[in-house]
Design a protein around this nucleic acid. Structure first.
Lengths: 104, 104
DNA sequence: TAAAAATACTCCATAGGTATTTTAT
DNA sequence: ATAAAATACCTATGGAGTATTTTTA
């Protein structure tokens, strides 16, 4: 099954255009990111990255997949945020109450 | 990071209302599904399943999360489908040609 | 030749399984 | 009493790291 983590690697590569930088941004090493993207390509059965060119560039399908991936990764973050928010419904109010220096 | 597989377990449980059936639908065993959902709850920091009731029922947040999860799992399938379609652009046409019984 | 990506391998964290116990009808 | 979920424990797959070897600009 597709992994959100792998999809986030593709998004990072698309945005940074560099395996090393993308890996750093994802807090993994370059070989790890490289290997997982290779796995993703085989899972989807399509080439995502254009090899043998001067710059790291995604294929046409690669770009489309990256777009969709970006949406899904964002939704995952929103889900986490939603869960966090549902835990502490009074946070907004409390913030006003627990900062003494704000009281006139 | 959240896993699409775990999210699909939650969707299955929501739809089938039964750990065993959900596990079967996901091609895993009941303890595996049970354990992964427990992990998901700890990742999100919220209780997703109402325990100690007569029927398997999701909490309020659990239902909301399951809704979002369903969308994301669907998008993953659409992504796979998109990749498949981009490999064989003539599939649609061919389908009409290879089913003899549909010809009047 | 100097950088960046790909390979080769090693390791270990954890997803998943089997066996069993606990908990609710 | 019985079906279903939780727990305990074990195994093995694969995600991630280090070291090294291609590439290509």
């Amino acid at each position: 099954m597709l992994s959100l983590k792998d999809l986030s690697y593709l998004v990072a590569l698309d945005e940074l255009g560099h395996f090393g930088k993308a890996a750093e941004a994802c807090h993994v090493t370059q070989p790890t990111l490289s290997g997982q993207l290779k796995k993703l390509e085989s899972q989807l059965g399509v080439r995502l990255i254009e090899r043998g060119s001067k710059k790291v560039i995604l294929t046409h399908v690669g770009l489309k997949i990256a777009q969709r991936a970006k949406v899904m990764v964002l939704q995952a973050h929103e889900m986490e945020e939603f869960a966090r928010a549902s835990k502490a419904p009074l946070t907004g109010r409390l913030k006003l109450a627990i900062i003494p220096s704000l009281a006139p």
